[in-house]
Write a protein that binds this DNA or RNA. Structure first.
Lengths: 192, 192
DNA sequence: GCGATATGTTTACGTCGATAACATCGAGCG
DNA sequence: CGCTCGATGTTATCGACGTAAACATATCGC
């Protein structure tokens, strides 16, 4: 609906329409195929090759969008996390994103194309920087880079383990509580 | 070589041969397909359906093997980790496994089949228990379950981020050092 | 207006997972 | 010993996929 389908032959803005359709399918849980996207948009499959060199390129574009959305989610609640509790909520938001849009999340991190897609690298960097800045605020005495990696790994691991059913929870709220508990357990180490 | 190929018609022990071939391909970096496995073993593709209900069942069997191998790796160096440093090496071993056998690691955790495969659930549980016991030894005052989840998430996240190129390192030794640094940074929080 | 260029289409190839129908072997019973 | 039956292979086939080639059409610069 967002983009037009002008003449009978040419589409108008196929690239955007294809991305939108693919994103919608990904979120609807339909495992997407190039052909399915083409079908959805009402165009022949090879037409997509005018706008994406191959399937991976389409995925890469989706991944870029996803990374931006993730960043937006992370900064929405706490623009600049400054307390340990804020950090915990950052992890909660990260895992919640993964569980709300699992297929997209998978594409974001599994799809190869690291070089090549400059916007995507930038989006990923911004997430990393957000984390690093937060760590610096919360733990000024610590190594911010190492802490950022550790925190990212924690959240990313939680996200993957829950997505893949290796950790179980009845509801998304329960997942959030588990993430909080695990995070709290780490902080409580200082009492040992 | 491990299993025989008796008569011209019947294979002898196709199930084992198929698993071995699939595992070898997975570790060689060849993305494996049911048909490719059949080709490798010298048998027609549908023959495999006599031994695996579908592709996922084959993957599930590989995953079970992989989980056992991972557990063996984790317990090889430190049978019962008792110090914080031991925990760090556990994480290092976990990530090293993922980077040494990435395709297998992916199958182990991405492949669905959680119920159904009892041996596999058991293998996963043993890893979880190993972690929990270690946490109890190292941090007797902490919540062992929450700490085990947190530690697993940390190691699993590191593994995935390095596998997917989201964290970069020149060599596997460098990866190990990064994991150690990140782990140390967490422990150093108590000094903040 | 007209031709180059961008953007579609049809057709086709090879691969994949999966099913159905048929072939062959080995074990156990007469 | 010979026959049948069940386990385990085979061939033939289907529909879906990614992708390339050759062809068609619409749009834009002159």
């Amino acid at each position: 609906m967002s983009t037009s389908a002008r003449s009978g032959y040419h589409h108008g803005d196929l690239r955007a329409a294809a991305l939108a359709a693919a994103m919608r399918m990904l979120e609807a849980g339909e495992s997407f195929s190039l052909r399915a996207v083409a079908r959805e948009v009402g165009v022949s499959a090879p037409a997509l090759y005018r706008h994406f060199t191959d399937r991976d390129a389409l995925e890469s574009a989706l991944a870029t969008e996803g990374l931006r959305d993730l960043l937006a989610d992370l900064t929405a609640d706490q623009p600049t996390p400054a307390t340990a509790a804020d950090l915990g909520e950052l992890a909660v938001a990260y895992v919640a994103f993964a569980l709300r849009r699992p297929a997209l999340f998978r594409v974001m991190f599994t799809n190869a194309c690291d070089e090549g897609n400059e916007q995507r690298v930038e989006a990923a960097d911004q997430i990393h920087q957000l984390l690093q800045a937060a760590m610096q605020l919360v733990f000024p005495a610590g190594d911010p880079s190492a802490l950022a990696d550790a925190g990212w790994a924690f959240a990313h691991g939680m996200a993957n383990l829950y997505m893949d059913g290796k950790l179980a929870a009845a509801s998304n709220k329960e997942v959030a509580q588990h993430v909080r508990s695990a995070f709290a357990a780490i902080l409580a180490i200082r009492d040992s």
